[in-house]
C-alpha cells in the first residue's frame, strides 16, 4: 500500500476549476517535487491535501494509508501524520509559539496513544530542534509568527515540522522570499528530517531549492494537470529551457528574461 494515492483529483474555488485531474502516488520515504508556474494549481493541491475548506473537491479520490483522506477534518489529517508548511504562515497575536506548538504536539501524541508532554519535557525536546534551525529560543515566547521576518516565518514552519515529526510533509513554496543563506538553513533542516518513514511533497516554482533538497521524482504541473514527470534531472532540464521549453506559459519567467 502506498502512503498517498491521488487519483484524478478535481478541485474548484468558486466557479473556477483549478485542479483538473491530478494523479500521483507517493511511497514511504520518497521526496516528490511539484514544479509549475504561477497559477498552475501547485498551492491549491497542497492546501486541498491539508483540508482547506476554501476549495471544493469536485471529483477524484485521495487515499492516505489506505483511508479516504478527503473525508477527514484538517486536524484529523494532522493527527494522522500530515503536515503542511504554509507558503504564507499565519500570524496569531495573543498565542505564544510555545503554547501553540505544545498544544499541537499533545493533540497528535494523544491521537497516537502517547503520553502528553508537560512544559518541562516539551522544552527539553524542542531545544535540540531549535539548534537544528539555528532559531533563537526567545521565539518560543513570542506570539505565533507575529512580527517575524519572512525568513523567521519559514524557519518556524520547518521547526514545527521537526517537532511534530509528520509521516507526510508538504512544503508549499518554502523557498519563496528567502535569501540564499536562509534557503540553505531551511534545506538543511528539511534534509535532517528525511528518512525511510517520512515522505515529502516539495512544491516550488524555482529549481533552486531542489539543488539543496534533492528529490526522487519531479512533476511539472500546468493548468491543473501534471504534464510531465521524471527523475531529479527533469528539474535541471527545466532550469535550462524554462517552462516555455515544455510549451508552458509563465508570465513571471518571461518578464525575468527581458
Amino acid at each position: 500500500m502506498s502512503l498517498l494515492e491521488i487519483k484524478d483529483l478535481h478541485a474548484t474555488v468558486g466557479d473556477r476549476e483549478i485542479l483538473k485531474g491530478i494523479s500521483l502516488t507517493v511511497d514511504a520515504g520518497e521526496v516528490h517535487a511539484i514544479m509549475g508556474p504561477n497559477g498552475s494549481g501547485k498551492s491549491t493541491l497542497a492546501q486541498v491535501l491539508a483540508g482547506r475548506e476554501l476549495y471544493a473537491v469536485t471529483g477524484g479520490q485521495v487515499l492516505y494509508q489506505g483511508q479516504d483522506l478527503l473525508a477527514m477534518s484538517p486536524e484529523d489529517r494532522a493527527r494522522a501524520g500530515i503536515f503542511l508548511a504554509f507558503q504564507y504562515p499565519v500570524e496569531i497575536p495573543g498565542v505564544s509559539n510555545m503554547y501553540f506548538l505544545k498544544a499541537a504536539l499533545n493533540a497528535i501524541r494523544k491521537q497516537q496513544g502517547m503520553e502528553e508532554l508537560d512544559a518541562f519535557d516539551f522544552l527539553n525536546m524542542v531545544r535540540e530542534k531549535m539548534t537544528l534551525l539555528d532559531m533563537d529560543q526567545a521565539l518560543l515566547n513570542r506570539p505565533v509568527n507575529t512580527g517575524f521576518s519572512g525568513g523567521e516565518k519559514k524557519r518556524n514552519e520547518i521547526f514545527q515540522m521537526a517537532v511534530l515529526e509528520p509521516k507526510l510533509a508538504i512544503l508549499d513554496e518554502t523557498d519563496s522570499g528567502l535569501d540564499i543563506d536562509a534557503l540553505k538553513l531551511v534545506a538543511h533542516g528539511v534534509n535532517a528530517l528525511r528518512g525511510p518513514e517520512r515522505s515529502m511533497i516539495v512544491v516550488t516554482h524555482y529549481q533552486r531549492l531542489l539543488n539543496y533538497i534533492v528529490p526522487d521524482y519531479v512533476h511539472v504541473l500546468a493548468e491543473g494537470r501534471i504534464v510531465k514527470s521524471g527523475g531529479k534531472e527533469l528539474a535541471l532540464e527545466l532550469e535550462e529551457s524554462g517552462y516555455a521549453g515544455l510549451g508552458i506559459a509563465d508570465e513571471e519567467e518571461a518578464v525575468g528574461k527581458v
Binding site: 503536515f83 503542511l84 496569531i92 499541537a104 493533540a107 497528535i108 491521537q111 506570539p143
Partner: peptide
C-alpha cells in the same frame, strides 16, 4: 488562523477557544 491551528492537529472547537482567548 483557524485553519492554521487545525492543520497542526488542534481540534476546531479548541482552535476557536484559543483564538477567542487570545
Amino acid at each position: 488562523a483557524l485553519f492554521y491551528l487545525q492543520s497542526r492537529g488542534i481540534g476546531k472547537s479548541d482552535a476557536r477557544s484559543l483564538l477567542t482567548y487570545a
